[in-house]
Nucleic acid binder design. Structure first.
Lengths: 191, 191
DNA sequence: TCAGTTATTGACTGCATGGTCAATAATTGA
DNA sequence: TCAATTATTGACCATGCAGTCAATAACTGA
């Protein structure tokens, strides 16, 4: 029917996600994107409409990845304590070369100006919150985790801890500093 | 000897600080600055050299303000618990119309690219850390604050909590959400 | 083989922006 | 009053960038 696309849309989306992750939205130019993906500007326009649309797709992809990983941990056949440990380690060792959290970065870059970006951030927070609540409340039932606060409060608390750690990562804190914060914050909720 | 300056440098620096605080570095143009300060581009160049130099001066001013406020709280004639409460309330009610923390915003915008910005962020974290440690360790001596962790660990912990809250503020979380996080995080360290 | 369709390419446009220049204004000391 | 000095002003410049356009290439179904 027509000329076939010469590149893999999914691969390109992953790569652009990493560029945005590293550099932010405004600081990323089409030149950056074509350099890392090997795809010319106009081809990107054909598939992804806009710079902003492309960015939003990258945000969504990122969120899916984060949630998938978190659910993987939740689905582990182990105690709530071990699940929290697994989460802690996964926060400490980012396999990608990227730092911080794309959505945290985006939230701070856009503030509350961009409706869609804000929505994407809320979505991620809600989903993370849910998974954390599940793990925590099962830990509380086993008397493993303190009952001084509700699972909702503790999930918000952990969520916020993670936000802070994402900032530390991106702003160049040492692994030791981050490790201390994670150990203390996660340890604190154990009864 | 020469023509006197027609504007107050300090006033202008405060105003530019707020613009950068609200909009970030890249998103702020000289037009924005002249609009809010009433001072023309070239005059700003005369006094502050560069956009980046101006930004760095704003960062330093911001840091001084934050530290001053924190030391004010520390110098209060009240218990460590009350001091922590005062800190918590001050985090909850920002008197300026600005959201988040200028230096956190800057850290995320620049990553670790800019030597000076990174240094400024480190400076602030160190200073905050010191004040927090003092309050915490005196609270620990009075058995008010848990001795399960060292004052250094708890100060890092609180510092990170504050980072997270700054992100929440900027990304549009509700006052209730922030209040919950602060209450839980600050409450958690009490023995 | 050809018509229709979509992808690719590179050139182009318009605009915003950081930074500079040169002319002019205001001030003070001699 | 004038010379020296610094502030102010508005015009100007170079650049980088998002987005568009038009020409061409590749593919398929008829």
């Amino acid at each position: 029917m027509s000329r076939p696309r010469e590149f893999d849309v999914d691969r390109v989306l992953h790569q652009t996600m990493e560029v945005f992750w590293n550099q932010g939205f405004k600081a990323t130019s089409y030149e950056d994107l074509t350099r890392t993906t090997g795809v010319k500007k106009q081809s990107l326009y054909c598939v992804f409409k806009d710079k902003r649309s492309l960015f939003l797709k990258a945000l969504a992809l990122y969120r899916e990845q984060v949630i998938a990983k978190l659910k993987e941990i939740e689905a582990l056949d182990s105690s709530p304590g071990d699940k929290l440990d697994a989460l802690r380690y996964s926060l400490l060792d980012d396999e990608t070369g990227c730092q911080g959290c794309l959505i945290v970065n985006a939230s701070l870059e856009f503030g509350t100006d961009d409706e869609q970006v804000t929505r994407e951030a809320e979505l991620m927070v809600e989903e993370v919150q849910l998974v954390l609540e599940k793990i925590i409340s099962s830990g509380q039932k086993q008397q493993l985790i303190s009952n001084r606060y509700t699972s909702i409060e503790l999930a918000s608390y952990l969520n916020n801890t993670i936000l802070g750690v994402r900032v530390m990562e991106k702003s160049g804190s040492s692994r030791e500093q981050i490790e201390t914060v994670l150990r203390t914050s996660f340890g604190m909720i154990m009864s």
